[in-house]
Amino acid sequence: MKPFLDMSGKRVLITSGTRGAGKATVRLFRELGADVLTTARNKPTDLPEKSFVSADLTTGDGVAKLADAVRNRLGVVDVIIHMLGGSSAPAGGYSALNDEAWEKEISLNLMSAVRLDRELVPAMEARGTGVVIHVTSIQRTLPLPDATTAYAAAKAALSTYSKALARQVSPRGVRVVRVSPGWIETEASIELAKRLAAEHGGNVDAGKQMIMESLGGIPIGRPSRPDEIADLIAFLSSDRAGTITGTEYVIDGGTIPVA
């Protein structure tokens, strides 16, 4: 029997594929038979050299280095998955964000994808086929003013850019889809829960509860797991989702209320 999802023969680029949901996505696509190239600033020990490119995608030079590696190693790319994102901005709301903080958030969460698409999507258009997945965030509609104003604004910009790109390239055979996660239970988020617990004299479960309460609650009572994010991305990247483009899939355990 043919498997429900089969990515055999697909050439796939996944940014930020060494931790959290990115790592889970790399692992799943390999299991499904794809030829995967991933990237981060530093190479982990568990990835073969041929499958990894060290690059800083917040810079134009880093994006150009990665694009050249894609052409040299994969020839062409069938699927681009923009997992890269995050925030290093200080807490304190808008007044704590200087120009440098804003530029870092925008370079990481918006311009890395814009530049990489500019390098690689034209070849997809020329072939008349391809998939681009932009990983945004529910914070584009549910920002946390004290800590994530710039991150949320950059992800909102990424979402708008993605919609525009979809309208332009979908008639030429290239699908563009957004995946919008809520809180994902990654190594980094567990460390945050531990810090919160230590500050308030509780255990790690109490720390997780604090994070969920800061988001207004998660109806299913837990964050998403990295492999659940990867499962959704794999489906949307596959031929099973052949008519899906220009839209956003929220995966947040019900954090954002819906009618």
Rank of each mutant, 00 (worst) to 15 (best):
E187P: 05
A230C: 06
G17Y: 02
M124S: 12
S8D: 04
A153L: 06
I81M: 04
R41K: 13
Q168A: 08
L165C: 04
R140T: 00
R172D: 05
A96V: 11
R225M: 12
L215V: 05
D239G: 05
V258Q: 14
L215W: 03
E213I: 02
G33E: 11
R172V: 00
A147W: 03
A166M: 01
H200T: 15
P143H: 01
E228P: 14
R222W: 00
L158F: 03
P122V: 13
E103R: 11
E125S: 07
G22P: 12
R175A: 03
R175L: 02
S159D: 14
G242F: 04
R140K: 06
P3W: 05
T58L: 09
P223Q: 09
D56E: 07
E31G: 08
R175D: 09
E199I: 10
I251K: 11
V70T: 06
R178T: 11
P122K: 14
E187L: 09
I14N: 01
L13M: 07
V176Y: 03
V179T: 12
G93M: 05
G242K: 11
Y161A: 05
I133R: 10
L66E: 10
R167H: 05
A164N: 14
D78H: 13
E105G: 01
V12H: 02
S159L: 11
I218L: 13
S214L: 07
G60C: 00
A40C: 09
G254R: 13
R240K: 11
T149K: 02
D35R: 14
S95T: 15
T15V: 07
E125I: 15
I14V: 15
T245W: 01
S88Y: 06
V79F: 01
L13T: 07
R11N: 10
D239V: 09
V77F: 01
Y94I: 15
V76D: 12
P145I: 02
N72A: 15
Y161V: 05
F4M: 15
I229V: 15
E187T: 14
D99H: 05
T186D: 11
V174L: 05
R115T: 08
A157S: 12
G20L: 07
T141G: 08
M212L: 11
G217P: 00
I244F: 03
G9H: 03
T45V: 13
D205S: 15
L232K: 10
D239N: 12
G246L: 00
F29D: 12
I138A: 00
Q209L: 13
S88N: 13
Y161T: 04
S16W: 01
M124E: 12
T129D: 09
D6V: 02
